[in-house]
Simulated scan of single mutants.
Amino acid sequence: MGRMMEWASKPNHLGGLPRRTVIMAVGTFSKAVANLMNSTSVHNADALLNLVRSRPPGVPLITVSNHMSTLDDPVMWGFKGFPTCNADLQRWVLAAEDICFKNPVLSYFFRLGKCIPITRGGGIYQEHMNEALDRLSNGEWLHTFPEGKVCQEDEPIRRLKWGTASLIARSPITPIVLPIVHHGFEKVMPETYMYGKRPPIPLWKKEIKMIIGEPIEFDIAKLKQTALSISRNSQHFKNLGWPPFGGMDEVAQRCLYIDISQRIQIVLERLRLTSFR
Rank of each mutant, 00 (worst) to 15 (best):
G2T: 10
G2V: 12
G2L: 14
E6W: 05
E6M: 06
W7V: 11
A8S: 11
S9E: 06
P11I: 08
T21G: 14
T21R: 09
V22N: 00
G27Q: 11
K31D: 00
A32L: 15
V33T: 09
L36I: 12
M37S: 07
S39A: 11
S41K: 11
S41Q: 09
A45M: 01
V52E: 09
S54I: 03
P56I: 09
V75S: 06
M76L: 15
W77T: 09
W77I: 05
K80G: 02
G81D: 12
T84I: 14
D88S: 13
L89P: 06
Q90T: 15
V93K: 05
A95T: 00
C100A: 12
S107D: 08
F109M: 12
R111Y: 04
G113N: 14
K114H: 04
R120M: 05
R120I: 09
G123L: 13
Q126M: 07
A132K: 00
L133R: 09
R135W: 10
G139M: 02
E140K: 13
L142T: 01
L142W: 00
L142D: 02
F145H: 13
F145M: 07
G148I: 02
K149Q: 14
R158D: 05
L167I: 15
L167E: 05
R170A: 09
R170Q: 15
R170G: 04
S171F: 10
S171Q: 06
I173H: 10
P175L: 12
G184L: 00
F185S: 05
E186P: 02
V188D: 00
T192N: 14
M194H: 14
Y195A: 14
Y195C: 08
Y195K: 11
K197N: 12
R198T: 08
E214N: 11
P215N: 06
I216S: 02
K222N: 15
K224V: 13
K224Q: 15
Q225W: 08
Q225S: 11
T226A: 15
S231I: 03
S231E: 01
S234D: 14
W242K: 03
W242A: 14
G246P: 07
E250L: 08
V251L: 00
C255E: 14
L256H: 03
I258E: 09
D259H: 10
R263G: 06
L271M: 08
S275K: 04
